[in-house]
Simulated scan of single mutants.
Amino acid sequence: MRLSVAVALWLLPALARAHGLFDERLAPRLPSLLGALLLAVAWLGHAAGCRRRPPPARRFWAFQLALLLSVLALFGPLDERAESSAALHMIQHMLLMLAIAPLLALARPLTQWRRLGGRPLAPAWRALARLARRPPACAALHGAAIWIWHAPGPYRLALEQPWWHVGEHACLLGSAWLFWWSVLQAGPRERGRALLALLLTGMHTGLLGALLTFARLPLYRDGGALADQQLAGLLMWVPGGLVYLLAAADCARRGLRRIGHGRPESGYSQGRGDDSS
């Protein structure tokens, strides 16, 4: 807890200074300040919850790594350079969707956040847990967020308007977290649907990557040259598709292993009782 508090208190002013939050351009920087505050609250809230319900070490460090990657992706030089490069913007999105979100799903931080939030927030936690039991619904929600925010209009709007930029990142990360929560913690009854959700997500993101790769004209006005856009498409298509394929293979492997051993599986443990994530 002391480590998390110290890091969070150190990061907040550092991030603020890095983005010029306290200079004469305060108004345009308010969205960045809000993002930094939310990140600090999430970090401190998890640390406080750990005192009441300590998580296993692997979950604790998964959460710490997820938050550190969030800082690097959203508040470092990558965020500034992503405004002028479609490829770097895609790397930023892939970090949110394919690294930070799975780590949050594995960390199951709702267990600690519930302990801190108490009863007032309990209905919201239960609603998230119920939704996470439906991999196809989570995959559809995440897929809609991906296609909407990679359409030319919303993409340019996020580049031009700081508040929309924050909304873009929140939608992609939040929907990805639910998606990975639903597929990584799928029980035996939902194993097939989780596998289907992974395969379909890999297919439609690959299609989007192919569209960006083979487009003859730049689709994003501020996205740089056509070659930069094509590189962004390749990043989504090949490395991104590989992540979904490996996750699908692991999902199938775990299902076949359970069938071969004839052992029951616990299912959505993080959506039940106090072990919610």
Rank of each mutant, 00 (worst) to 15 (best):
192 G>W: 07
71 V>N: 07
226 L>A: 09
257 R>A: 09
93 H>M: 02
77 P>T: 06
206 G>M: 08
33 L>N: 11
272 R>P: 00
86 A>I: 04
120 P>L: 05
238 V>E: 11
84 S>L: 14
101 A>M: 13
159 L>G: 09
266 S>H: 11
217 L>K: 08
98 L>H: 01
43 W>Y: 01
257 R>T: 04
72 L>E: 03
69 L>I: 03
235 L>Y: 11
269 S>R: 14
175 S>V: 07
75 F>E: 13
273 G>L: 00
210 A>C: 08
213 T>W: 15
172 L>C: 04
205 T>H: 14
250 D>F: 13
228 D>I: 04
69 L>D: 05
228 D>S: 03
148 I>W: 15
48 A>S: 02
219 L>T: 00
104 L>V: 05
159 L>K: 08
110 L>K: 12
93 H>C: 03
129 A>V: 07
40 A>L: 12
224 G>V: 05
274 D>F: 13
116 L>S: 02
181 W>M: 12
251 C>G: 03
18 A>S: 13
62 A>G: 00
209 G>L: 07
132 A>S: 13
218 P>I: 00
261 H>E: 06
210 A>W: 15
263 R>F: 14
248 A>C: 02
139 A>F: 10
274 D>N: 14
275 D>A: 10
136 P>M: 07
188 P>D: 15
34 L>K: 06
173 L>C: 04
161 Q>I: 10
275 D>L: 11
58 R>E: 10
78 L>R: 10
162 P>K: 02
129 A>M: 10
18 A>K: 06
224 G>R: 03
96 L>Q: 10
141 L>F: 12
269 S>K: 13
242 L>D: 09
254 R>P: 04
86 A>N: 04
218 P>N: 00
148 I>E: 09
233 G>D: 04
226 L>N: 14
22 F>C: 00
191 R>V: 02
83 E>V: 06
187 G>E: 11
94 M>A: 03
70 S>F: 12
153 G>I: 14
249 A>K: 09
56 P>G: 08
207 L>I: 13
271 G>Q: 15
140 A>D: 09
139 A>R: 05
56 P>R: 03
249 A>S: 12
46 H>S: 11
74 L>Q: 08
119 R>W: 09
244 Y>F: 04
274 D>W: 12
187 G>L: 10
98 L>K: 01
159 L>P: 05
188 P>R: 14
223 G>T: 06
202 G>T: 03
22 F>K: 00
127 A>Y: 00
221 R>T: 07
82 A>E: 14
135 P>L: 06
226 L>W: 14
16 A>M: 14
12 L>K: 01
236 M>R: 09
259 I>K: 14
85 S>D: 01
254 R>Y: 08
115 R>E: 15
140 A>F: 12
170 A>E: 08
250 D>R: 14
256 L>H: 10
65 L>D: 00
240 G>P: 01
18 A>F: 08
154 P>D: 01
91 I>K: 07
22 F>I: 02
198 L>E: 03
95 L>P: 07
50 C>F: 02
252 A>E: 11
44 L>P: 02
83 E>W: 05
35 G>T: 07
158 A>Y: 01
172 L>T: 02
170 A>F: 12
218 P>W: 03
44 L>A: 10
160 E>T: 11
1 M>L: 14
191 R>S: 13
